[in-house]
């Protein structure tokens, strides 16, 4: 682990990046694209991290409230601080639990900053949550002493907010399908006509609400190009002849189509014409 981190740091430092940036880059390991996709920093308590599911045995795949966790920020008390030349380790106690914090030190400025971090003080830690040798730990890129102690209550309020936000988000996205499906089937049950009639007006032709098969046959006659071309439309008797059915049955169908706006009467009560050209 040390050598790979070192390579990453020296690589970016050599490229002229600021050291603090280099730390961030090498913290995200060698899959920057993946890490950057969820750079969102979550406010968490140690208890939440402790309860988190590890999605796979991969080093940085934790899920809290259904959200992939990478960057986290915690506020708590520093205990068991151990200072080495290249890194500083301590245990953060936020009152809900304790978690190991690991901070690589790249230059004198960073080590001076960490000199202020002593056992018993409150700090805000921001870093990447990682699983290391079966233990969860945070590889920090920022450790800042808390100076206004309202920040502790504020942090917990943020934790609650983030928790609530993510849980509600899951509920909404999780229930989209069950909610939409009954909603749609209801609209079809309640009004197939209501839904299709407007369509027939927009897209005349065979999409119209033609009713039964017989009504469809009647309408097909009205839709024949030669009948559409006639100014006076089609006589009822023409349809009776064509279909060989009783006149009253044809009239019933014509009334149906008239009511639905598919045809209209022209020169008298016996001539009807389709609305689709009109």
């Amino acid at each position: 682990m040390y050598s790979s981190e070192f390579d990453g740091a020296s690589l970016f430092s050599g490229g002229g990046f600021m050291p603090s940036q280099a730390t961030q880059f090498n913290d995200s390991g060698f899959s920057p694209a993946k890490s950057r996709a969820n750079q969102c920093t979550l406010q968490l308590t140690v208890k939440q991290i402790s309860d988190a599911d590890q999605a796979s045995d991969d080093k940085s795949n934790f899920i809290i409230d259904g959200v992939d966790v990478n960057s986290v920020t915690l506020v708590g008390m520093v205990t068991n601080k151990v200072e080495k030349i290249t890194d500083v380790n301590f245990t953060l106690d936020d009152g809900t639990g304790r978690i190991d914090i690991h901070r690589w030190v790249n230059d004198a400025a960073e080590s001076n900053q960490l000199a202020d971090v002593t056992n018993g003080i409150y700090v805000r830690v921001t870093g990447q949550l990682k699983g290391f040798q079966g233990k969860k730990q945070i590889v920090a890129f920022s450790v800042k002493p808390v100076t206004d102690f309202n920040e502790i209550a504020y942090h917990f309020i943020e934790c609650m907010y983030v928790h609530l936000y993510n849980v509600k988000l899951q509920q909404i996205s999780g229930s989209v399908h069950p909610q939409t499906v009954p909603g749609m089937s209801n609209s079809f049950q309640n009004g197939p006509m209501g839904h299709q009639t407007p369509i027939s007006n927009k897209f005349p032709g065979y999409l119209v609400d033609a009713g039964s098969d017989f009504d469809q046959m009647v309408l097909t006659i009205f839709h024949e190009p030669e009948n559409l071309a006639k100014e006076s439309g089609v006589h009822v008797d023409t349809i009776v002849e064509r279909l060989g059915v009783p006149r009253n049955k044809v009239m019933a169908s014509i009334n149906y189509h008239t009511d639905n706006g598919n045809i209209y009467s022209t020169i008298d009560d016996y001539h009807y014409k389709s609305t689709i050209n009109g």
Binding site: T45, K47, G120, D148, F149, N150, Y154, I157, M160, H163
Partner: peptide, 30 residues
């Protein structure tokens, strides 16, 4: 352990956090 929190603490906010941490959001804390 006793920690000096200074003289500017919003007690009503802290009190509300106590209540929430023992109520609706208990799962985040204990």
């Amino acid at each position: 352990i006793c920690t000096d929190f200074g003289d500017k603490i919003d007690t009503s906010t802290y009190d509300r956090v106590c209540q929430l941490a023992n109520g609706e959001f208990k799962s985040l804390f204990v």
